[in-house]
Design a protein around this nucleic acid. Structure first.
Length: 398
DNA sequence: TCCTAGTCAATAGA
DNA sequence: TCTATTGACTAGGA
């Protein structure tokens, strides 16, 4: 029941958005691929050339960080203040962000056996779609494909990664809490190269690896295109680490590899059916919480906005999570929430803002109704044959 | 049936 | 206005 309700609530959000922003559905497919693949060919890219062109323009406008801040303010103002939909702000949406509360059952398939009542994260496979083209892009660059390309690519990019993560790691190691069930916490990523390698390897073992590895290696491309990676703004605020502008996804230290645990415990082997059920990656929850907190403060994003639009959670929940992040090992379904945070952190700033703006209207419309009431309403709507109860609901409120 | 995790919604406080 | 806290609720598992 609750699952249905949650699914309804967040799916409704998406549907509402799509209903109100028909253009958005066109944007999604051609999302960030344009960043790297303006000349790329994919079903997505050709879905709407016009949209792609506009996206390209958006991207090539290369929003500076300061511009991003102002944009964020505009976004929040527009949403919070009941602002109307502004096409000029309709930046292309990452799959993950365009479907902030996607309920796809395949979301974390193979990652978690516990299907939680909360709204699953957009399936990483879905997110991967976004980078799928990057994948090809890299293939094209490397001239090699197949499963090993990731590792090869990591090796190529590791020097930069080391430069980035080493100081971070040092700082992180002083954060105190062991945020990973590894006991040694961040020590698990002592060897950054290995971690990245392992991480990529683990991802390679999953169907989603390419997205993340692509993210790991695409940072330079992001920034070189003036996208202003999130790290550019965030890193200076976090543990004094110096963000490499080219690595917006500075999640290396945030993630602890399960393989490390495996290595230390010798209890399991990566890739074993059991080992892949939810431990492909470990998120440093405290670090994520700190980074989220920093980002929210940085852009003056209210917790309520972020919680609702990115996490599909309440403000109180977010506040609690940020202040009292549980160790990853103690999390169950709550991992999804942290995954969302983490994923959000990985996004380029413009995509973050898109995510924040995206579900704004509907979330505001839907908030503050007792779950039971909404649940009953949903039940009624489903019974009445509404396939898109959200739209009906929204229109009703409007 | 009980316990735990996760979350929500209300509310107090800054 | 925003954040932190808290009580209550639900789902899942033992």
């Amino acid at each position: 029941m609750k699952t249905a309700y949650n699914a309804y609530r967040c799916l409704a959000k998406d549907l509402d958005v799509y209903a109100m922003n028909p253009e958005m559905t066109m944007d999604i497919g051609s999302l960030s691929h344009e960043q790297d693949l303006m000349s790329g060919h994919s079903p997505h890219h050709n879905r709407n050339p016009g949209a792609s062109l506009r996206i390209h323009q958006d991207l090539t406008v290369a929003p500076s960080r300061s511009a991003m801040v102002s944009s964020m303010a505009s976004i929040l103002d527009g949403v919070g203040g009941g602002g109307e939909y502004r096409p000029e702000l309709s930046l292309p949406l990452h799959h993950a962000m365009s479907m902030p509360c996607d309920t796809s059952p395949s979301g974390m398939s193979g990652t978690y056996t516990t299907l939680t009542p909360l709204q699953p994260l957009p399936p990483i496979s879905t997110v991967s779609d976004k980078f799928h083209h990057h994948h090809h892009h890299h293939q094209r660059l490397s001239g090699n494909v197949s499963g090993s390309f990731t590792l090869m690519r990591d090796e190529r990019t590791l020097p930069a990664m080391n430069n980035l993560y080493s100081p971070y790691h040092k700082d992180m190691s002083g954060m105190g809490q062991s945020l990973s069930p590894l006991g040694s916490g961040l020590g698990s990523i002592h060897n950054t190269q290995q971690t990245l390698h392992n991480y990529s390897h683990e991802k390679m073992l999953s169907s989603n690896f390419d997205a993340h590895t692509a993210m790991l290696t695409r940072g330079d491309q992001h920034l070189s295109r003036g996208l202003g990676g999130p790290a550019a703004g965030m890193m200076p605020h976090l543990n004094g680490m110096h963000g490499h502008p080219g690595h917006p996804q500075s999640h290396g230290p945030v993630l602890a590899s399960n393989r490390d645990r495996s290595l230390s415990s010798s209890s399991s082997s990566t890739g074993a059916p059991g080992s892949g059920s939810g431990q492909l990656e470990e998120i440093n929850t405290r670090e994520v919480a700190q980074r989220i907190t920093a980002e929210l403060k940085r852009y003056s994003i209210p917790q309520a906005i972020f919680a609702q639009r990115v996490l599909c959670r309440s403000q109180g929940t977010l506040s609690d999570l940020l202040r009292n992040p549980k160790p990853w090992s103690k999390l169950k379904s709550g991992r999804e929430t942290f995954r969302r945070m983490w994923k959000w952190l990985q996004e380029p700033e413009f995509q973050r803002m898109s995510a924040l703006r995206l579900a704004g209207k509907t979330s505001v419309q839907k908030k503050r109704a007792r779950p039971k009431q909404r649940q009953e309403q949903y039940t009624k709507e489903v019974a009445a044959g509404f396939h898109r109860p959200a739209a009906a609901n929204t229109s009703g409120h409007l």
